[in-house]
Design a protein around this nucleic acid. Sequence first.
DNA 1: TAAAATCTCTATAGTCACTATAGAGTCAAG
DNA 2: CTTGACTCTATAGTGACTATAGAGATTTTA
Lengths: 146, 146
Amino acid sequence: MEIRIGDLAKRSGCKVVTIRYYEKEGLLPKPARSGGNFRLYGEAHIERLQFIRHCRSLDMTLSEIRALLGLRDNPMQDCGEVNTLLEAHIQQVEMRVSALLQLKRHLVDLREKCSGSRSVEACGILQGLGNCNCHGESATNSQTSG
Amino acid sequence: MEIRIGDLAKRSGCKVVTIRYYEKEGLLPKPARSGGNFRLYGEAHIERLQFIRHCRSLDMTLSEIRALLGLRDNPMQDCGEVNTLLEAHIQQVEMRVSALLQLKRHLVDLREKCSGSRSVEACGILQGLGNCNCHGESATNSQTSG
DNA sequence: TAAAATCTCTATAGTCACTATAGAGTCAAG
DNA sequence: CTTGACTCTATAGTGACTATAGAGATTTTA
Ligand SMILES: [Zn+2]
Ligand SMILES: [Zn+2]
Ligand SMILES: [Zn+2]
Ligand SMILES: [Zn+2]
C-alpha cells in the first residue's frame, strides 16, 4: 500500500507543498522513495497526517502538535500532559473569543457614530477612530511589553 | 513641537521599530530630520499614529487602515466607503468568533474523552484526535481549494 | 573635556504556517 | 516519441511585526 504525495494530499485535504513542509518541520517522518525519487507513503503516514490536520483545524500550532505527536509516539507515558496541553489550548481559544467580542462591541459602537452626513470630514466613525481614548496616552497597550 | 521617535513610541504605546515600519509601509509620512538625521515628529504624526494604533487594536489589517487613512486624507469624499469597510470588518470578526466557538465546542468534547486511565495509549483525547471523522476523507476542507 | 550611557540610524534576517514560482526530472498514455 | 500530469529541489514572498549588528548622535556624568 504505497501512495504518492498527490494522493496523500487528496486523502488528507491538504496540499502537496504542505505535506513536504510538515516533513521538513519533522512532523511527518521521511517516507521511502521510489526509483525515480518520488515519496512513497503508507498507512501510518496517512493516519499521522490526518491527526495533524485535525489538530490544525482546531487551531493548534505546529509546536503544540509536535508535542502531542511526541506523546503519541511514546504510548507508555502518562496522559496528563495531553490534558494539560488541551486545557491550555481551550483557554487560549476562550481568551481569543472574549477579546474578539469586546472588539466587536467597540466596532458596533463605532458604526453607530456615522452621522449620515455623507462627508468623510464629518463622519463620526473616522472621528471616533481618531479621538477614542480607550487606549490612553500612557502605555496601557499590549504592544508595549514584548 | 518636535519629538523624537522614542517619545512618539512612548506616547502611542508602540515600539520604535513599528513606527519605522509604518513609515516604510506608507502609513506614516516621512518626518523631518534633525541635523544628526534623527526623525522629528509633530502633532499631526502623533494623531495619525494614534489613529493607526486604534485601528490595529480593532484588528484591522494595515491595508484596511491604509484605505481609511486615504479617505481621511480627502475629507470631501463620501463617507459611504468608511461604513462599507467597517461593516465588512465587523462581519469578519463575527465569522471569526463563530468559527472559534465551534472549535471550542470541539475541544471541550475532546476534553471529555480522557478516560483518566493515565496512559497515553488509552487516552481518549489522542484517539479522538486521530479517529474523529468530522473532517472526512474526501475534500471537505478549506485548504483544498486555494 | 572626556568617557559612559542612552538613543537613533540603516540594513538584514527571523517569526509562523504556509503559498508561489522556477527549472528540472519522472512516468503513463497515445 | 511526444504530450501532459505528476514530482523533485530550492528559493522567495505573505503580514505585521521582532530581533540583531554595527555605526553614528546626543545626553549624562565624572
Ligand atoms: Zn459616516
Ligand atoms: Zn477606542
Ligand atoms: Zn487521557
Ligand atoms: Zn474532529
